[in-house]
Design a protein around this nucleic acid. Structure first.
Lengths: 234, 234
DNA sequence: ACAAAAGTGTTCAACTTACACCCATGA
DNA sequence: TCATGGGTGTAAGTTGAACACTTTTGT
């Protein structure tokens, strides 16, 4: 009975993360250049190996922490990449994740094993293996997701202004929105709480700061799939 | 340099498919009871092992073919399930896929290694390992997807009627729609071509048969992510 | 005083929803 | 002839898109 298990081939399991950040103007990706010993000086996604007794989600979070020093961040499984020769050294199945982090939180956490750098999603270098395809897919998925879920907040600091949020969505979709319509729509979700402070410095007038109503936010997220929807069909 | 690879642990990689079907009334799942030697008489998803030089997508399609005799069917990666002890026998990472098949095409392809049976999604048996969670996730995903993509056609025969399609969507969302609004909306997509035939037998009057405009269908699918959308944001 | 960004309202078109009656046919 | 399911139109409400001016304040 258990010979069925013995007879099967085993694979290395890697976890690679597409790490999105937003600097106020552009959507960015955090890429690493691994030490020379490994894959020369090709930029690649942040990745690592699954440990023997580790959950795959936990492993992705661990690896992300090792690079950025950040924990408790938005991390979603993207897809498995399992072409047989994707890694020429040895058969490896890679589970790709995408992460949304607030660039301001990522304050020069220096990784000693990796050289890390933010790249604009508009001009990325050539990436290792199939990492380029992973990135394309992740951008599509981020867009898809952002149309349906109020996911964008994950990329901003705790307090932010509506113009900042608009810039973020404009960067995600690579387009422009009308600010009157944008603010009306965003406020109609009731997910934002207006604070008494204004952000100063960026503009002369200053803009009101908002924070996310976390309870509402979670509610929207969890109940999202239980409705009868109105996209293509309903 | 390559010791990095040697030092890593390897896992078994399984592929498990959630196979959806529609019988005209209910949304169904095809489950199998593996031979007694293996996991007793617990119902489970159709699954198998990744072969040494096989792409993961190909493997999922192969396993599906082995059970159903069907090829070239809708198959989408759902998620990896990688909890360390999910399979008590040996560490196995499972890639879950969901498949949409037209029940009428699956005409008693008898699997000699497996006992297979359709179950209503409303009353499923207890499933092996974490297969129950996979199923829940797959149903959510099918709903999500069906709101955005005209994916439902995959579950119907080549020629179908609008009332049939409506029943299908009602089964997917477990709700009811107004038939006037439904047909207006479905026809507004321009994805259906009305045929000159009527389906007889089911109703006295008979209903017009339609087929999918495959070119349009592909177009919609491929371009779907390139628009600026109107869900939560845009 | 002026430049730069923030904030706010209205109108029109498109879409969504709710709702009811006649049609064709087989039994 | 009647029971069953198929097919169609309209009005009201809601939502989305387009559009311009006033406010604040740092320089």
């Amino acid at each position: 009975m258990l010979e069925q298990y013995q007879a099967q081939t085993k694979c290395l399991v890697a976890l690679d993360s597409i790490i999105f950040g937003f600097d106020g103007e552009e959507l960015k990706l955090l890429l690493v250049k691994r030490g020379l010993e490994e894959h020369g000086d090709t930029w690649s996604l942040m990745g690592g190996w699954l440990r023997p007794h580790e959950d795959t989600e936990d492993a992705a979070a661990r690896i992300l922490f090792e690079l950025t020093g950040l924990s408790d961040i938005y991390l979603e499984q993207l897809q498995v990449f399992g072409a047989p020769y994707r890694d020429p050294v040895e058969r490896t199945v890679s589970i790709a994740y995408f992460a949304l982090i607030n660039v301001a939180d990522y304050k020069d956490v220096i990784s000693h094993t990796f050289e890390a750098q933010w790249f604009s999603t508009q001009e990325l270098p050539t990436l290792l293996f199939d990492h380029g395809r992973m990135v394309e897919l992740a951008i599509d998925r981020l867009r898809y997701k952002a149309t349906q879920h109020p996911i964008g907040f994950e990329l901003l600091p705790d307090k932010f202004t509506i113009p900042q949020l608009q810039k973020l969505y404009e960067a995600i979709f690579n387009t422009e929105f009308d600010k009157r319509n944008f603010s009306r729509k965003i406020l109609s979700t009731k997910l934002l709480i207006k604070l008494d402070e204004k952000q100063k410095g960026y503009s002369k007038k200053g803009a009101y700061l908002y924070k996310v109503d976390k309870d509402e936010y979670r509610k929207v997220f969890d109940t999202f799939l239980n409705f009868v929807p109105n996209g293509f069909m309903a």
